[in-house]
Amino acid sequence: MTETATREAYDGLADTYAELFTTAFEGNPLDRGMHDAFAELVTGAIADLGCGPGRVTAYLHSRGLDVFGMDLSPRMVTLARQAYPDLRFEQGSMTGVPVEDASLGGIVARYSVIHTQPEELPVIFAEFARVLAPGGHLLISFYAHDGAELAEPFDHKVTRAYRLSPDGVAGLLAEAGLKEIARLERQPNEGERFLQGCLLLRKDPAV
């Protein structure tokens, strides 16, 4: 999907999305645990890219992190600002994060790359590597599959999306200079359809 199509799809469903997934993160101790580990490892400014209505941004802020949220959908950004007026939220694209080189201590990308066409993932991962400081961390979550292909398309209901191979994602991120240090693959909970993947990676301190 193009960014325009994805943005328009989420703008149209943002209010419903925010209402339906009020406890999707807080109610999952495994997912939350990976974010807690991330919070203990990172220092400096943190970007929650694809922040949606801002719940994960707010959670990371509650853990003491200097975090801001960014989303492609202007409506999602509006909802996040309304819900968390003391936090910073911006509209923008992961292909061009509006920060300087090596200026972030960490990035969270929770299910925000699933609408990216597979051939464009290296562009986004290179952008992650650009904005992360040496030694900075990336926490990336996605719908997963255990096949040989990098990506398998599926009907996401909002717009076209892809299930991703954890090994394939880790390999592309390694090419961008980010080394995997931990991984979570869990079976779907009630209401979920697919295997869930989460990778924690670190930018080489020497880069």
Rank of each mutant, 00 (worst) to 15 (best):
A24M: 09
M94A: 15
T2M: 06
L60F: 05
G177A: 11
G171V: 00
R88K: 07
F142Q: 09
F89R: 07
H145D: 11
S73F: 09
A182G: 12
G12Y: 01
S93F: 03
F154E: 02
L195W: 12
L20K: 15
P118R: 11
L139N: 08
S103V: 13
L195V: 13
G197F: 02
I124V: 15
E3I: 03
Q91P: 08
F154R: 14
R163I: 10
E19S: 09
V67H: 07
V42F: 09
E175D: 14
E192S: 02
D204Y: 00
D11H: 02
L184K: 09
L121S: 12
D204S: 09
T2Q: 01
P85F: 07
L164D: 07
F89W: 05
G105N: 14
Y84W: 14
M70V: 12
I114Y: 10
G168F: 06
Q82H: 04
L49W: 09
R32H: 06
L49T: 12
C198L: 15
L20C: 04
A144S: 12
G171S: 08
G64V: 14
D15C: 02
A126F: 10
I107Y: 02
A161C: 05
D101C: 05
L13W: 04
V207A: 12
K179N: 10
S73K: 02
L20A: 14
D71Y: 02
L87S: 15
A83T: 08
Y84H: 13
G136W: 04
F89K: 01
R55V: 11
G44L: 05
E192P: 06
E190G: 10
E100F: 03
Y162P: 00
A80V: 11
L201F: 09
Y17N: 10
Y59H: 14
R7G: 11
A80L: 00
V97I: 15
A206L: 12
Q117F: 04
A176R: 15
Q82R: 15
A206C: 05
R32D: 04
T43W: 12
I181E: 13
I114M: 07
S62Y: 01
V77L: 09
G136N: 12
E120H: 04
E100W: 01
D204P: 03
G33I: 02
L172S: 06
V108H: 03
K203G: 00
Y17V: 06
L104S: 02
A161L: 12
E8Y: 05
F68V: 03
L139P: 04
L30E: 14
G54E: 01
T6V: 15
L87I: 09
D167P: 01
P29F: 01
